[in-house]
């Protein structure tokens, strides 16, 4: 028990010292993040992008930095951003807060440049319905405004009119977007996932079903490097690196002690 408490203390110090001293670390963007960046970079002003906010408070430290970095890039490119959630309505209050913060920074107007479509249960059924007519499932936005009254949705009916879909997911929603929006309707899709989900997402990059992918805080830090705006992701990287070094040292120490005992 005593050893365990020493380890907890070391981990706490490894996280808090870099945060307190505001250390920074250089991050090299990985190919999937670079691909996501290029896909957004290729957008034209006025293109509509659907952003799925499918992560809740439990994964906010990982997901919020990438969400903010992506929104920053989208608004810089002059894209129209519509957020929605197909996982849980609880995901949206945070999603709206971050969206409005970034929109304010770029002087964007609700309804013209960005909108909140709200939450809709039924995941796969909703994704398939958007392929036919978005108004069938979202006749109004989250504030009750008819979709036709929002200038950014004029002439937008289905995936043919949506330039890009970005699903930021802490669960399986991104899989449904791949299976139905991408495979059935050929929609272009980027996903941002928690680090735990990172390895299971890589095959979709290989199969070109995703045009880009960000995984965890590291993915966010890489994206922040690409848009040259260090944020929460970049600030967390030194602490992350410190804990990784600590874990590696502890594994080596544990193995060395084990080997020493085995020798005796």
């Amino acid at each position: 028990m005593r050893t365990r408490r020493i380890i907890y203390t070391l981990v706490f110090l490894a996280v808090s010292i870099p945060l307190l001293l505001r250390w920074t670390a250089r991050v090299q963007p990985s190919p999937p993040v670079e691909m996501a960046y290029q896909a957004i970079e290729a957008l034209q002003p006025g293109d509509l992008v659907l952003v799925g906010v499918d992560f809740g408070p439990s994964t906010m430290p990982e997901m919020n930095p990438m969400y903010e970095a992506i929104l920053e890039h989208l608004f810089r490119k002059g894209a129209k951003v519509a957020i929605l959630s197909l996982q849980s309505a609880l995901d949206l209050p945070n999603g709206v807060q971050v969206l409005e913060k970034v929109a304010r920074r770029h002087n964007k107007v609700y309804g013209e440049d960005y909108a909140n479509l709200g939450y809709k249960p039924g995941l796969e059924a909703v994704i398939v319905s958007i392929g036919q007519e978005i108004r069938d499932v979202f006749p109004e936005d989250a504030l009750g405004n008819p979709l036709d009254s929002l200038p950014m949705f004029q002439n937008v009916h289905n995936y043919d009119d949506i330039a890009l879909i970005i699903d930021l997911a802490s669960g399986g929603t991104y899989g449904s977007w791949i299976q139905f929006a991408q495979a059935r309707y050929g929609a272009k899709l980027i996903t941002g996932v928690t680090a735990v989900m990172g390895p299971e997402t890589y095959p979709y990059i290989q199969s070109k079903q995703l045009v880009g992918m960000l995984a965890g805080l590291k993915g966010a830090a890489e994206y922040e490097t690409l848009i040259q705006r260090p944020g929460l992701g970049s600030r967390g990287m030194p602490a992350q690196a410190m804990v990784h070094i600590l874990i590696i040292l502890m594994i080596l120490y544990g193995n060395w002690r084990f080997w020493e005992r085995w020798q005796r």
Binding site: V11, F12, L19, P61, T194, E200, Q240
Partner: peptide
């Protein structure tokens, strides 16, 4: 191994978020 490594990274990220909030 890759999945475990990513899982460690995810858990540390959550800890960073909480410690960041406290500090």
């Amino acid at each position: 191994g890759a999945t475990f490594g990513y899982t460690v990274m995810a858990r540390v990220s959550l800890l960073i978020g909480r410690v960041g909030f406290l500090l």
